[in-house]
Amino acid sequence: MSPVKQFTCIVCPRGCLLTVEITEPAADAVSGAPNYLDAVRVVGAACGRGVVYGRQEATAPLRSLTTTLRTSGADRPRLPVRSSADLPLERLLDACIALDTVVAQAPLRCGDVVMADLLGLGIDMLASDDLAVCPANGASHG
């Protein structure tokens, strides 16, 4: 892991350029456990929220995952889905691959779990829209 990272803060439109230094954690004076909190130093943030963001982003960036699933018996071919919590950034593509084989069976309500415990991360994939059952094939003219 590189000891210094630079990136733009996305907490507000100001867009501070954050520099995050990661040092070897020192032992806590009281408990003797490594003090990770002080080992990550965020410079350049204009506010406290930026410091929190910078620390998380530099050590273990997390991202939500939104994608679509194939459907079965539904009135449309794809169902939008979202993760119930943020995933480690580096697992996003693996998660998509895992979801390739999942089929959403209509009917579903927005918020229903369509895949539990994605990649063993303890995160579920939820329907992010209602999915209605396909009505009888719509008439076409002629």
Binding site: T68, R78, L89, E90, L93, C96, I97, D100
Partner: peptide
């Protein structure tokens, strides 16, 4: 089609 894309493509790096 959506999945077919991934099946036949070289993988892109995540980070």
């Amino acid at each position: 089609a959506s999945k077919a894309g991934r099946d036949t493509l070289p993988r892109q790096g995540g980070r």
